[in-house]
Design a protein around this nucleic acid. Structure first.
Lengths: 245, 245
DNA sequence: GCCGCCGTGCCAGCTACCTGACACGATCCC
DNA sequence: GGGATCGTGTCAGGTAGCTGGCACGGCGGC
């Protein structure tokens, strides 16, 4: 899901120097990138017309670290696609805060709630400076309703998210905290490191920070990980995988 | 999601006495029923051609209570739709068993894994005698690829399941067992009663049966529920809702 | 370079949940 | 009607995780 393989910086740069290629070409390039993110390439590839239809509707917005992209309870009036950076999707506050997901480049959100006409169930905070593409509701609806290939690809995208969500439920039920922690470290790793504070990790598992910290130090003593400031390096992925059940 | 409002018996009977209407009309009726189950009626209604295409591909199978519809690890080669009865989707065995979901009439499964080309992550056991409609992979693919209205509706169906799954994650994270139990009783209730043994409920929450039983008896003492053999009656839904957080 | 903030490390007491085991009651099938 | 099977009720001991609080150390802004 996290398409972090995609070198975000390259395209970030091309956004900055708008000169090279002109706005229209840039828009198409953005759309092509979204097309690669939504579902797999296998079935129903995007046609050039699909791409230009998509490109015509995308709007780029940037959010500073710490700012709010949308709030729980807001009406979902369109679709967000993360271009670069990271968003934390969370519910509640203080010690009751639960983190539903942390999403990075390539992730799509808001479409589910838009399709179902329900309010957004969680708040999205930018964990870093983040660029987001926005597709307004009518355009989204129009693309889905008129272009079979887009509807087909979007179906795959949602299916992937559902499979991931179910896997997470399976990974939580009846597992010891140790197993859950090993699992989430592997899931959230980007290039061999988990760039999240322990408080966030704890909120993703629904446990208190001291409980998490205790296990992390145990892992560190065993040479599985290295705990850093605001991040965790994974040293022995094989053994971590074995521990995750 | 659980379309149990649909009087399953009526159509069950019509399956048995095939005479009334003939097989073709029955097939159409089955397809129409499926059409009502998949997504909402609002956007992109099914056309008569959609219905007959769907009807041509559906196969009916019945499973005895306790039998296995599919196993974890099996390749997903089509789509199942529960017509009547209940299926338990579970992972693992013994004290490590986790129940991912219990699905009833109108529920669709296997499509996600088919679309993504992944094996089924859980085993489906029939909790009661159960009738299942089966749509083979090629037909499913054909319907999606050729009929926009079906793809559009299916998207809504998957979106509903994803929203439900996310809600479940939110409902589990950082909640006390008491809150979780109140919540799951409300979610799994059918006509004011939860027709599941405590063992299954415990496996849905990933806890041990004695822990569940202790809380249930507490609820019963407070007049919230009535514990029966293999089922639980909900007596005070308002107070249960208040307790579920 | 200093200060404030945020993140980490850790503790002591408490509670809630787990383990596994056993007795009893319902239900089903013969 | 009797036995097998499955579900419920309960207990006692062990432990994992919570509460909340405090000290320390990076990190960033001034």
């Amino acid at each position: 899901m996290e398409l972090s393989k995609q070198p975000a910086e390259t395209l970030q740069r091309s956004i900055r120097l708008l000169g090279g290629g002109g706005p229209a070409e840039l828009a198409i390039r953005q759309a092509a990138w979204v097309a690669r993110c939504v579902g797999h390439g296998d079935a129903a590839p995007f046609t050039p017309e699909d791409l230009s239809a998509l490109a015509a509707s995308l709007r780029t917005t940037t959010f500073e670290r710490g700012s709010v992209v949308f709030r729980a309870g807001d009406e979902a009036d369109g679709v967000w696609i993360v271009r670069s950076g990271r968003l934390e999707l969370s519910v509640g506050a203080g010690s009751k805060r639960a983190v539903v997901h942390v999403i990075g480049p390539g992730a799509v959100d808001g479409d589910i709630q838009y399709l179902l006409g329900m309010p957004l169930p969680y708040t999205a905070h930018a964990l870093a400076d983040t660029t987001v593409l926005y597709l307004d509701g009518e355009s989204f609806e129009g693309l889905l309703g008129k272009r079979l290939s887009i509807a087909r690809r979007w179906l795959t995208s949602v299916a992937m998210r559902l499979a991931e969500s179910q896997e997470r439920i399976i990974g939580m039920l009846g597992r010891s905290l140790t197993e859950q922690i090993a699992r989430i470290l592997l899931e959230e790793a980007v290039d061999g490191a988990v760039p999240l504070p322990q408080r966030t990790l704890a909120a993703m598992l629904g446990v208190q920070r001291p409980s998490l910290n205790k296990t992390l130090k145990e892992f560190e003593r065993n040479g599985l990980i290295k705990v850093r400031y605001g991040a965790i390096d994974l040293l022995d992925i094989d053994r971590l995988t074995a521990m995750s059940g």
